[in-house]
Design a protein around this nucleic acid. Sequence first.
DNA 1: CCTTTATAATTGTGTGTGCAAGCAACTTTA
DNA 2: TAAAGTTGCTTGCACACACAATTATAAAGG
Lengths: 144, 144
Amino acid sequence: MLEIFFKECLYFTASRLSRVITKMAEREFATIGLSPTSAFLLMAVYEKESISQKEIAQILHLQPSTVTRLIEKLIAKGVIVNRVEGRMSLISSTEKGIALADEIQRCWTNLRSNYNDILGEKQGDELTLQIFEASEQLEFIEKG
Amino acid sequence: MLEIFFKECLYFTASRLSRVITKMAEREFATIGLSPTSAFLLMAVYEKESISQKEIAQILHLQPSTVTRLIEKLIAKGVIVNRVEGRMSLISSTEKGIALADEIQRCWTNLRSNYNDILGEKQGDELTLQIFEASEQLEFIEKG
DNA sequence: CCTTTATAATTGTGTGTGCAAGCAACTTTA
DNA sequence: TAAAGTTGCTTGCACACACAATTATAAAGG
């Protein structure tokens, strides 16, 4: 049977999981009008007085170009601002952005309980950790 | 630290893993001019004399519209044909498509050894299985 | 038999992400 | 200090996938 074949393929299963969990996350964060990734970006911005796009890309493990696009949208929403300094582009949160912090936190917590209700808290957290470690190893090799 | 936060989020880690493994898979299947998903679709077509788009969608866990688009491209490449029967669209492989079977198999095997060389065979296969099971559970709930 | 409902597939549109090329600013080297 | 290289960011283009609306066919009910 073909299903057995597929279920032994990390590409196949990882893509599928990503699609499912992305849908859950999008639904959750839609309540505050953000995409999950934008929400995470915003969390990265909260951490520091100001942060460069490069740092954001490293934290989120996204390409710089992707970060540029995310930032454009968040600036348009008025939740962050962009101060250009030399060749760097320093991002910081506006009042409006800071005001979102609690709601983002809440969404994140909700999302986590949504999937942990299904997977079991221990299993869900363990799976997450294992996926994290696998990503680290694979990405490390990929980037040489 | 924010990284700790992220590494505890299944959405975040699963998306990241998916991006990394997709890149590996794309590189591998690029050698035979297919996207990984198209290759898997083709494998589903090999299994039966002919198969409907709906069945393909179920096997690959993709939306019907996505399958339509994949099929368009594979027809354009001449590796499958589409025989319309009533409201169903029955797909079967051409000679040219069948000729790809071995190469697809080889790519699949290569991909698997690529990531298992990094993750360890046992760990890689176990992770894949766990991800598979989590997907099943989450998707089951999502669809009610 | 005709109308209603259900199902299979397609089409239009949108989102998230990436790659490659380009631009602008900084750094190094001569 | 000028030329060459490097780095940070942006832009154009492309791909994979999804959702919602539509079309086309089949099935069910009066």
